[in-house]
Nucleic acid binder design. Structure first.
Length: 805
DNA sequence: ATAGGGTTAG
């Protein structure tokens, strides 16, 4: 026998290369088995780096294994990089891993890329299943079903996983109807997998998502025909019933389950919470504890959510103690939702510092944690803290931007909110309907019509027209910017009017002095079968106040309780008192206060005070101020109102004493109060001492105010200033000094809302030229054709605007 | 390597 040939240099090299490759494979296998994800990432990276420097051309299966392991980690970039270089040796396992990792992180676009990059010969059933499930997760059912069809065309045999995913994808089919469900149901039966538990569960879930009542019977039929059920069957049926609002059916199902599966309790508790039945949720939780049923992070999250919704912070603290004692491991991902709701819980109970401590101590955070903390700060009026945290956020999402923009608006920082919104757009984040609603409210605050209209255009372009939150905010924005016609136009074109829309439109009419339109709209609302709420009656009473409709006001005040069982609250009383005082029926107002079923609070006294001042009844105003003082000694407005009455009466020493008292009591003025104070004093000074003041004097005083405000370094708080200015405008308009009024405004450089208010008054006055002048000053070059057209309307043909821009 | 369900931020 010939001896085996001596190894040549080349073959020994080949052999050692093969040894090396085997060596890498072994190490990789070792990493995969001894380091559970995500801890395997570091060793994986060092091995990969070593491999790259070794100069070895790794075999396909080694690359595929690397892709698979990277897919299980957070480093999907490396995985994709390897994957795109691995052609033509791709295997379906690596592709499936990467695809489903992208799906899990919400990137259907990248999952689709992987799908397209994988040739048909490298696919298998599992790969298609993963793609269908990715579509289901991203709620694009049509696409999922399309993939399913391709799978059949390409000759792959679907299995029970396939059908489960297809049924799940069908959830998000647009206008899902019974026919869709039945087609899928029959094809499932044809395949003979109708008895597989997961398929039946998915079918039940699908039927229960259908809008028609008959679909629930089909769901029930599937449920009854099941030879065996698992915990998901019960959860599916309970959740489905809760979603339909059939809480009793959900409970019956829960009782029928007979305590067989512990985790089903969680589904029932969360069903109660979602339906607002906090007491039932807590009762079930107590039963769970007393029966010794094991609690998990889902239980804790639901129960804490119940506590937060019900404002039961004492109880939630003891649940927190329970969590600490027996609860889940805080370093694990599963504990995240518990910690997140704890942040919300502590912020909502006024303990933001505690929430922050919890947040800082959390070893793992997700975007929800950050957003919960941001909302906590924003709700506590700590906008700057929120901003600081926001800038540190690496995982910003559109929710974070929404929290920040609407948070700034709610804290009176609308200009910054608009700036943030623009920044958000610049960074490529797509706003949702709620974000638009928030910034639109900011425009309403500022009275900024032009940005408001730009936002309107965006809302139309991105299809948020049908969003109620955006639509209602849009309506309110137009109303507050003084263009009630446009507000009405939005109202008329909105597809789904809700109670908020009706209330907003009624209020818009009322604010602009169209009391009768408000009342007519209210009647139309009743005719359409919409049930009014306490807000509706507040807006109606306001409308009556603005138009001096005293009898109507009385009527609606009595009507709300008699016909709708809505007991008037102190805010309703305050409106009626305001209405009576402004109509000069002060003794009636006083009697009303006497007859109230509760002790008068500060808003009642404020109403009486404002009403009696308008009527020139100084003694009553002082008396009301005194009562107000007793009711709300902690509010800065109380002191300022009182001192203003004194100064407008020329009783400066007493005014000064009130200020001193304010300082002694440690009450701080809100920045905006200085504005209203200065403005109010100027107003009183002009109106009371001079009767009809000379316009030069007016301008000088306005100048003074401007100088003073600038010196104080305050940004104009539009709402307060406008409130003070409104009365004054009227006076100018009535004294036909419209043109000079325009000049005065030019000097003041107020935010945009002020000129709009003036424009409205000039319109009443019919002075088109002055209006154009105010516009050109106020808007600069921003004047839009639509504005011009609007002002053409009130004096047709009399003005030509060509000279002004 | 893939499926059905319950939790958290507005």
């Amino acid at each position: 026998m010939a001896p085996p040939p001596a190894p040549t240099f080349a073959s020994s090299l080949l052999q050692s290369a093969s040894h090396l490759a085997n060596f890498y494979s072994t190490i990789l296998h070792h990493i995969a088995t001894s380091f559970p994800p995500p801890r395997h990432l570091l060793p994986l990276r060092s091995l990969h780096a070593h491999l790259l420097t070794s100069g070895l051309r790794p075999r396909a299966h080694l690359i595929n294994h690397l892709i698979h392991l990277y897919s299980l980690s957070t480093d999907l970039t490396s995985s994709l990089h390897l994957f795109s270089q691995s052609s033509p040796h791709r295997d379906s396992i690596a592709a499936t891993s990467l695809l489903s990792s992208y799906a899990a992180s919400g990137r259907l676009d990248l999952a689709t890329q992987i799908f397209d990059m994988t040739p048909v010969f490298a696919r298998d059933t599992v790969f298609y299943n993963a793609m269908i499930s990715a579509c289901a997760r991203a709620e694009v059912g049509e696409k999922g079903i399309c993939v399913f069809r391709h799978m059949l065309c390409d000759g792959f045999q679907p299995d029970d996983y396939t059908y489960t995913s297809v049924l799940s994808a069908a959830h998000s089919i647009l206008n899902l109807y019974l026919g869709h469900c039945q087609i899928l149901h029959s094809s499932v039966l044809k395949c003979g997998i109708g008895r597989v538990v997961s398929v039946s569960n998915a079918l039940i879930s699908l039927y229960l998502r259908c809008d028609c009542r008959a679909s629930a019977q089909h769901a029930r039929k599937v449920f009854d025909s099941m030879p065996e059920r698992d915990e998901l069957t019960w959860i599916t049926i309970i959740v489905g019933y809760v979603r339909k609002g059939w809480l009793c059916d959900a409970r019956s199902a829960f009782d029928a389950m007979n305590g067989k599966f512990d985790v089903v309790w969680n589904a029932m508790i969360s069903g109660y919470v979602q339906s607002g039945c906090i007491a039932d949720a807590l009762a079930l939780f107590r039963e769970m504890v007393s029966k010794g049923i094991p609690l998990d992070e889902f239980t804790y999250t639901s129960v804490l959510s119940a506590c937060v919704n019900g404002g039961l912070f004492g109880l939630s603290k003891s649940v927190h103690a329970h969590v600490i004692r027996a609860g889940p491991d805080f370093s694990s991902y599963s504990a995240l939702p518990v910690n997140n709701i704890l942040i919300t819980m502590y912020s909502k109970s006024g303990k933001v510092e505690l929430a922050r401590k919890l947040f800082d101590d959390m070893p793992l955070k997700d975007p929800v944690s950050w957003n919960a903390m941001l909302s906590g700060y924003v709700d506590a009026k700590l906008t700057d803290d929120a901003l600081a945290l926001f800038h540190r956020m690496a995982c910003m999402n559109q929710m974070a931007w929404m929290v920040m923009t609407s948070g700034f608006v709610n804290n009176g920082r609308a200009e910054e909110a608009l700036a943030l919104f623009n920044m958000m757009r610049g960074k490529g984040f797509e706003p949702c309907g709620f974000t638009y609603a928030g910034v639109m409210a900011g425009c309403a605050d500022l009275g900024s019509l032009t940005p408001g209209m730009q936002l309107h255009a965006q809302v139309i372009r991105y299809g948020y027209e049908s969003s109620n939150s955006a639509g209602n905010a849009l309506l309110t924005m137009y109303a507050k910017c003084g263009v009630v016609e446009d507000a009405h136009q939005v109202f008329v074109t909105m597809r789904n009017l809700d109670l908020v829309s009706w209330n907003a439109m009624i209020s818009a009419f009322g604010q602009h002095g169209y009391g009768l339109d408000a009342i007519n709209l209210f009647n139309e609302m009743l005719l359409q079968g919409i049930y009014p709420d306490r807000i509706t009656f507040l807006t109606i009473l306001s409308a009556c106040t603005h138009c001096g409709l005293v009898d109507e006001g009385y009527h609606y005040f009595n009507y709300m309780e008699k016909h709708y069982g809505i007991t008037p609250g102190e805010d309703h009383y305050a409106r009626l008192i305001d209405l009576l005082c402004r109509a000069g029926r002060i003794s009636e107002a006083q009697n009303l206060i006497q007859s109230m079923p509760f002790e008068p609070t500060s808003i009642i006294w404020e109403a009486l005070l404002a009403g009696s001042r308008v009527n020139g009844d100084v003694d009553l105003a002082l008396q009301a101020a005194d009562w107000l003082f007793k009711a709300a000694p902690h509010l800065d407005g109380t002191y300022i109102l009182l001192s203003n009455i004194y100064s407008s009466e020329g009783r400066y020493v007493e005014a000064a004493n009130v200020r001193k008292l304010m300082r002694d009591h440690g009450v701080k003025k809100e920045p905006g109060c200085s504005w209203i104070e200065v403005s109010n004093n100027a107003h009183s000074f002009l109106a009371d001492d001079m009767g009809h003041p000379e316009i030069d004097m007016v301008c000088r005083v306005l100048d003074l105010i401007n100088a003073k405000i600038t010196k104080l370094g305050y940004k104009p708080n539009t709402k307060l200033v406008l409130h003070a200015m409104e009365e004054r405008d009227k006076e100018y308009v009535l004294s036909r000094h419209s043109e000079r009024l325009a000049i005065g405004f030019g000097l003041l450089k107020l935010p945009v809302k002020a000129p709009i208010r003036v424009l409205k008054n000039l319109r009443i006055c019919g002075d088109c030229h002055a209006a154009i002048m105010v516009m050109s000053r106020a808007f600069g070059r921003e004047i839009i054709v639509r504005d011009v057209k609007r002002f053409h309307h009130f004096k047709d043909g009399e003005c030509s605007c060509g000279n002004y821009w």
